[in-house]
Amino acid sequence: MKSSNLLTIVAVVAVAFALFNLLVTINKVGDLNSITGYAEFDTGTADVEIESAVHIRFVVGEDALDWGTGSVNTDPATLDSVTSPYNDANWDCTPPDCPLDVGMDGGLELENYGNVNVDLYVDTTENADTFICDDDANCIATATHDFNWQFEDLGTTASCTDKDIDDVGGDEAFWSGWEDVCRSGDPCDVGGDGLFVCDEFLALDTDDTIEINFQLLVPISAPAGQRDVIITATAIESL
């Protein structure tokens, strides 16, 4: 066979092969959605589940519930954490020891820091008889004494969406005025968790904080000395 013929055959085979290859390539390119990385839709989805967490925190300011130093001159003296100057005329104090001078800064702020709404309960370890009168029978029987709290919603709209716990009608009284604190074990205590304060305490950035304020009515006959009280907040996811 002449070399030129051989060369021609080789060239034809090469061109045929190249044409075949071209056809295969064109076919593959036309089926673009089978190529890795080609997005058939312009949106993708990713599945991720964020674990739920119930998380609350007390934010206690430097001067929260700080009434300074003073004494009772007339029965009873009233101290509270809401209305400046935070004491009445029956409370005797000398600047710079009065509540306004020491920078009295309201009550306890409680924030829902988790990512679920919660049912909120609050209780104390003491009530008026034990905290103010130190269980003294004479003080309890004869003196005007009280240990009250009230709750304030600090949300932009409302941090607590259901303040009507017993569904009788209207928000519970402790959301608008002073009520006796709830000591653990007293009738107000729900299942050992304390007073049911809020059914649906929200976890939104703008609506997740409430404040607990306190009022003390202190009689002259109240025994002197230090008393301790623990305020406990309990949170359970609202299901």
Partner: peptide
């Protein structure tokens, strides 16, 4: 009746997941 209430300043926080 001297009353000065000591209250610890700070953040008291607790959470649990799930």
């Amino acid at each position: 009746f001297i009353i000065f209430l000591f209250l610890m300043e700070g953040v008291f926080s607790l959470g649990v997941s799930p």
